[in-house]
Amino acid sequence: MQWRNSSSHYGLVSILMHWLVAVAVFGLFALGYWMVGLDYYSGWYKTAPDLHKSIGLLLFAVMLGRVLWRWMSPPPASLPNHGRVTRLASKLGHSALYLGLFVLMIAGYLISTADGRGIAVFGLFEVPATLTSIPDQEDVAGLVHEYLGWALVIFAGIHGLAALKHHFIDRDRTLMRMFGR
């Protein structure tokens, strides 16, 4: 398998980033859902949010990399058996996933930095606060983060189901392409 995407196949870089983001998105959702219900005396009460924020910020960097890589090495063309509606739906769906994920991550960042505090990434370096003056920033960003989090995992689930539909019902290469076939 080559690094770059070709006109018919995904390359290693796109495939690795896709699955890394997939694991991170579902993992962060589960971690976020679990951590907000933790008991104050749980050993994870401080650690879990720190992890959630650190992984989330690294995911932001990976997503920037993905967008950059799409531009440097465009994804392969649609499969010939995909009709106009399928192509349009997949384009819109993928755009929504990208956009939703970016807004979700930015909202998360705006919660934690609303009072000017930076976010330490695994205690290694700090991402400073920038926007701090949106009215009720932590609450507004919090609502966006919560609802968009749900929307995104549901939408990502539909994305996965669509891939399975291509594999088992249409019996085309859509899913297998993401494994390098």
Binding site: P49, I111, T113, A114, D115, D136, Q137, E138, D139
Partner: peptide, 16 residues
Amino acid sequence: TTSVDTNHAERDKHLR
């Protein structure tokens, strides 16, 4: 009660 302020945005959000 929305105006609660403990000098920490995440905590204030939690308090609300």
